[in-house]
């Protein structure tokens, strides 16, 4: 089978082209799906196997990044989204898409998919938007289907509001125990594994996120979101320092995430 991916678009989402491209490179068929085509019934999420909310500046990040798009989904597509998640299909939110999933309460989320916001992404401590490369380390014990087999990857971060925080710090422990704090910024000069809860200095942690959190998944491990852009490292020649490295050119370090989801769908939905 060829899994079908709904890559959301519209209202200032702007990474849909490359997000579609990486899913196609991973062996899926990706459609650009304007949010309003789901709201007006022209298209139905049910017909897709994966939903991706790409990066961008939906509604210009005004009133908090991801909030207005989150509301569009929370108020306009509530049941479609809940049913999609409950039917065991993977969802990813990247950068602004992650902000959307957090603000609409899908991440870190809960078993009932109640869409209640429990965390947020605050302004970077630097107070401004930045584009720089970071090294990420994945929790190898996590049950997140998107990150299976990943250890470390290098990808760009491109955001102004990426500091993962919550009002109740005990929640962090709960999420940690449940394997939901799946990806963190890490000092590339250390040996794997070495992720730490102690906030790393800038710019290793570009935003001073709590516990260096770069991305989280929901309790089911199917919904995953992260601030950095794995889709922007789909090929080796897009790396930050590839001209310094003796490499065989080909697939970039970010591709595995998308392949994981495509393979998961093939394994679980091919009937």
């Amino acid at each position: 089978m060829i899994p079908k991916v709904a890559v959301l678009s519209g209202f200032g989402i702007n990474c849909e082209t490359e997000t579609m491209a990486v899913f196609e490179m991973a062996g899926a068929k990706a459609d650009r799906v304007h949010v309003n085509r789901l709201v007006n019934g022209e298209l139905n999420l049910e017909d897709y196997h994966i939903m991706a909310v790409p990066g961008g500046f939906s509604f210009g990040d005004h009133l908090g990044s991801g909030r207005l798009m989150g509301n569009r989904l929370r108020f306009g597509l509530r049941e479609q989204v809940r049913n999609f998640v409950k039917s065991g299909k993977p969802v990813i939110g990247i950068c602004n898409g992650f902000q959307v999933l957090v603000k609409m309460g899908l991440l870190p989320g809960d078993d009932d998919v109640s869409l209640t916001q429990t965390a947020s992404l605050a302004l970077n401590d630097s107070g401004h938007y930045e584009n720089r490369w970071a090294t990420l380390e994945f929790d190898s014990n996590s049950h997140c289907i998107w990150t299976k087999g990943l250890t470390r990857i290098r990808v760009p971060v491109r955001h102004g509001e990426g500091k993962f925080v919550t009002a109740d710090k005990r929640l962090l422990d709960n999420w940690n125990e449940a394997g939901q704090l799946v990806v963190k910024y890490v000092d590339p000069s250390t040996e794997y594994p070495s992720s730490s809860d102690e906030v790393l200095p800038y710019p290793i942690s570009p935003n001073q996120s709590w516990r260096n959190i770069a991305g989280v998944c929901d309790p089911s491990g199917l919904v995953f979101g992260l601030m950095p852009h794995p889709e922007a490292n789909h090929s080796t020649w897009l790396g930050a320092t590839w001209t310094r490295e003796d490499i065989e050119h080909g697939e970039g370090e970010g591709m595995k995430i998308f392949k994981n989801a495509v393979n998961y769908v093939i394994e679980n939905f091919d009937n």
Binding site: N14, V22, R158
Partner: peptide, 14 residues
């Protein structure tokens, strides 16, 4: 740094 120079995932020499 505060310009996004990598959206569209095409940036080879940055």
């Amino acid at each position: 740094r505060s310009y996004d120079h990598e959206v569209i995932a095409q940036s080879v020499i940055k």
